[in-house]
Write a protein that binds this DNA or RNA. Structure first.
Lengths: 216, 216
DNA sequence: GAACTGATGTTATTTCGTTCACAATAACGA
DNA sequence: TCGTTATTGTGAACGAAATAACATCAGTTC
C-alpha cells in the first residue's frame, strides 16, 4: 500500500521551476539544474523523466517548452481544474480567495456550509447550503473538494462527500481521514506539522534520546 | 540527507489516538490497535516504541497513561508551545484563531505584518509591525513561526525570520523554502497538494502512462 | 506451581526509492 | 570528417524504512 505520491509531487515541482526558468528567458535545462532546484540528485530527475517518457537531447539537455507541454498534459493542466470548499469558516473562506490557486490553474467554484449565516448564493464565489452538495457535484462534475470543517464535523462531512461521489479530498480538519476505495484523501494537519517542527528543533542534530542505547 | 521526519510524525499520531482511547475509557492498548489506527503494521508500532524506550508489558500491552506521559515529555507537551504568525492576511488571521491549536497545547502569542492597516497591538492576540519581529522573538524566546505571506514576500520574510534566529518555520507561501543550517523549514503548498490530488484521481489504480513501456 | 497463552522486544529479511556508474549518442570544433 | 566533450538514459548497487519472524517473558488457569 506504498504511496506513489512522491513522484507526482516532484512532477508539479519540476513544472513550477520550469516556469520560472522560462520567465528568465532560458530555453534549455539540464538535469543538474532541476536537481539543484529541488535538492535531489540529477539522476533522479532523469529517472523521473524517463518514467514518464519525457525525453531530452543527449547533449543539449531538455527543452523547457517541450517539458512544460508534456507536464501540463500529464497533470491535466490544459484545462482549468475546478474545486469546491466544504466548510466555510475562517480557513475555508481564506482559501476561497487564496491567490495561489488561480496562478496554478485551480478555480474554487463554490463553497458549502451548514451554518445559515454564511450562506450567500449570490456572491462571486457562491456559498450554498451543504444540503445542495450532492446535486451540485453531480451537475457540475466536480471531482475534488477541500474540507475545512471543525473536527467534530469531519467524519460526517466526509460521508456527505463520499455520497456525492467526490473522487479526492484535501482535508484540513485536525482528524486524519482514512482513504477509501474510490476516494483519495490527503490530510493536512497543521497542528501535527507544528508538533513535528518543535520536535525537529528540539533534537536538531542530536539523535533522539536513547536511540537503542548502543554503549560507547 | 534523508529525513527522519516520519517517525516524529507518527509519535504525534500515536499521542492523538491514545487520547481518544483514553477518553473512551480504555486503560491498556496493544500494538495491533495502534497499527490499525495509523494504518501501519503492529511491528512498526513496537519498533517505534522501542526506539524511544517506551516499554510495555509482555502480555498486557501498553498502559495508555504511561505512554501519554512519556510521549508528552518527548514531544515537549508538558509546557505550552508558543508560536508567532508572520503575515496576517486571510490565511494568517484564520490560523490565529484556529481552534485546533489550543487543543494541542499550541498558543499563537502574536502576529506580525508589514501592512499598517492590520496592525493592532491591543488585540487579544496582538499584531505588531514586522519591524518589531526580531526584538520580540529575542525577548520572548520564540523558536517557531508560521509564515503566511504572499509569494513575492516569501524570500524576504524568511530572511527576517533567520535574522531573528527563529529555529523552525512552517511555510504556507506557495514558494518552497530550502531549509538552512540552524533553521528547519516545513513547506505546506496547498496548490501542490491539490495538483497531486488531481493527478492521483486521474490515475487512481491505473499505472502512470507508459511506465517504461514493458511489453505485454 | 507447572504448563500454556498471548503480547512484547528485537533480529533477520524484504522492499523500495535513490544514487552511482557508465554506455550510448548528439553537438561542437578543428 | 573525425575526434572530443557534455549530457542523457538506464542497469546495478546501495541504504533506509517497513515487514516478517521469532525468542522472551508476564500473566492465567487448572
Amino acid at each position: 500500500m506504498a504511496m506513489k505520491h512522491d513522484i507526482a509531487q516532484r512532477l508539479s515541482q519540476y513544472r513550477s521551476v520550469l516556469y520560472k526558468l522560462k520567465a528568465l528567458g532560458f530555453v534549455r535545462v539540464f538535469s543538474d539544474n532541476l536537481g539543484d532546484a529541488l535538492e535531489i540528485s540529477p539522476a533522479l530527475v532523469r529517472k523521473d523523466f524517463s518514467t514518464f517518457s519525457l525525453t531530452g537531447n543527449k547533449r543539449g539537455g531538455y527543452l523547457i517548452m517541450d517539458l512544460l507541454d508534456k507536464l501540463n498534459r500529464l497533470l491535466g493542466k490544459d484545462k482549468v481544474q475546478r474545486i469546491i470548499i466544504v466548510g466555510c469558516g475562517k480557513i475555508g473562506q481564506a482559501l476561497m480567495t487564496y491567490s495561489g490557486f488561480t496562478r496554478e490553474g485551480l478555480q474554487v467554484v463554490a463553497g458549502f456550509d451548514s451554518n445559515a449565516s454564511v450562506i450567500s448564493p449570490q456572491a462571486s464565489i457562491p456559498i450554498y447550503d451543504v444540503k445542495e452538495l450532492k446535486a451540485y457535484v453531480k451537475r457540475e462534475g466536480i471531482r475534488i473538494a477541500i474540507m475545512a470543517v471543525p473536527d467534530n464535523a469531519a467524519s460526517h462531512t466526509f460521508d456527505l462527500l463520499r455520497a456525492a461521489e467526490i473522487k479526492g479530498v484535501l482535508n484540513f480538519a485536525p482528524v486524519p481521514l482514512k482513504g477509501v476505495e474510490g476516494c483519495v484523501v490527503r490530510n493536512i494537519n497543521i497542528g501535527l506539522e507544528l508538533e513535528n517542527l518543535f520536535y525537529l528543533v528540539r533534537f536538531s542534530g542530536k539523535l533522539p534520546p536513547q536511540p537503542a542505547g548502543r554503549a560507547a
